[in-house]
Design a protein around this nucleic acid. Structure first.
Lengths: 267, 267
DNA sequence: ATTATCATGTGGTCTGACCACAAAGCAAAG
DNA sequence: CTTTGCTTTGTGGTCAGACCACATGATAAT
């Protein structure tokens, strides 16, 4: 129940009364979540217009909008202005966007240390490749392969290479046909994109590193396709830890060809 | 520059201009993210008051609020009314809440099938226990153990038991000291809480199932403490798959069928 | 039949006004 | 001087109303 009493007679409260302490926008969110759970709302459906929803729930339009904004940020709805069937708020349930935003912002706010992100990637990705290698009708890795050929261009700027690298790892996750895993992998990788990019700029010899990464990618794919789960696991692990150790090494200054490969990474 | 031209002379645009298509609230979000990245804002800091922020960024207060609502939903800030040091919007980077909300809502909107959630849990949790078992100074599992004893009460209602079960699995994740993994585990488990609970109600013999789950929990902990990573992995996997197979088995269905399962997924 | 114009419905935004609340300031009483 | 109680101030929370921009569909003019 809103605070505004302004002057109108003390109204009661509409059926939408959530728990006492709840704020207006939360009650809107809860209502929508409830309608989703009962199937009253489903992907592809339109939400009622903001003004209608506000009237239905007896809250101000701004409160409705705040709830809608959250849904949009979480990737649950898409809004469009104008008129007709494509306008309004439509339920789309696009897992990727929300997960990415969440992880990216938490990293920015130092809620998620970068090393935890990397470590989680390790955990997830080793599981993914092992599973892919173990699946009997070997999963299709066509998209992974095409990304590898795209990455084989020696003249590729490091930024473009890394973007393709991200897509490669996400493609690996997609091969599992698990939407949650895919969303998480995309989010994990994207949330540290800027970190990775900054690290690559500090490398003494990018061409050399890129070449190594290409080999490692190929090796992972090969292991998966040959069903060597243990090997796939080891390779993806070394691939990830190796790269992060390289870009987070305080040195890298030695400059002389051979990578000094100092101790182990921080954590 | 906002749309409102009303009539005042066409002014220019303030420096906060994000990309052309961006909406006002997005530019606020971007600005705050930027300040987080530069360290201008850090956990514990207060955000400027809404009205000030609106003036600074040359947007309406409502747009600022929409951005803040997103940050709040994502668990980045906490807001409080009143005055003094505890009032206002404070950056708190609480990873758990946001991840939970995201997963829960996506499950509700059918963006994440329950099956994928469970599968992801499997992937993550096997990795977690394996790692715990492999870590040399064996991690402290005191909180896990105390949860186990709490769960050993035979008279515990299934709802309470399952709540403790959730905490047990999250405690396992916490033992890794990885905030991302912990947040994900909590979110994964909580997002299907209602599903799990509904399933337990349909079981033919809850007491029997609970007893088995207790044994399995104990077995997992034992394996971890003895450093038997392979065994820990297998046990946690069987524990999870076993339970979900049991509650999703079409058996035991006939009678106590319930749950807000709407007609059919239609499309 | 084609084209141009207008009406309508929708999200996006701003402004201004309250309310509720918590702290800090301040004044009166002890 | 301390304590008590009121007032002020600053903050988020909410609402109401007003525009704008935009896409569509209906209608009128050619």
């Amino acid at each position: 129940m809103p605070r505004t009493t302004t002057s109108p007679s003390g109204d009661g409260h509409t059926a939408t009364d959530q728990r006492p302490g709840a704020r207006a926008w939360q009650s809107v969110l809860t209502t929508i979540e409830g309608r989703l759970l009962t199937g009253e709302l489903a992907p592809g459906d339109h939400l009622p217009p903001e003004r209608t929803l506000a009237a239905e729930l007896a809250v101000g339009r701004s409160s409705v909008r705040e709830a809608l904004r959250v849904l949009e940020a979480l990737g649950l709805i898409r809004t469009a202005t104008g008129s007709g069937p494509s306008a309004g708020a439509i339920i789309v349930a696009a897992p990727r966007g929300g997960m990415s935003a969440l992880l990216r912002l938490q990293v920015a706010a130092q809620g998620f240390p970068v090393h935890d992100i990397v470590h989680t990637r390790l955990l997830l990705e080793t599981g993914i490749v092992e599973e892919l290698a173990r699946t009997t009708p070997r999963p299709a890795l066509a998209s992974c392969r095409s990304l590898l050929t795209a990455m084989s261009d020696q003249a590729l700027p490091s930024g473009d290479f890394l973007a393709l690298d991200t897509r490669f790892h996400v493609a690996l996750a997609e091969a599992t046909h698990n939407t949650v895993v895919t969303a998480m992998m995309a989010g994990l990788r994207e949330s540290i994109e800027s970190y990775v990019f900054a690290g690559s700029a500090a490398l003494p010899d990018w061409g050399r590193t890129a070449a190594r990464l290409r080999c490692e990618h190929q090796a992972v794919i090969d292991a998966i396709e040959q069903g060597e789960s243990a090997k796939a696991r080891t390779r993806i692990r070394d691939h990830i830890t190796g790269y992060y150790a390289e870009i987070s090494a305080p040195s890298a200054a030695a400059a002389t060809d051979e990578g000094p490969r100092p101790p182990a990474p921080a954590r």
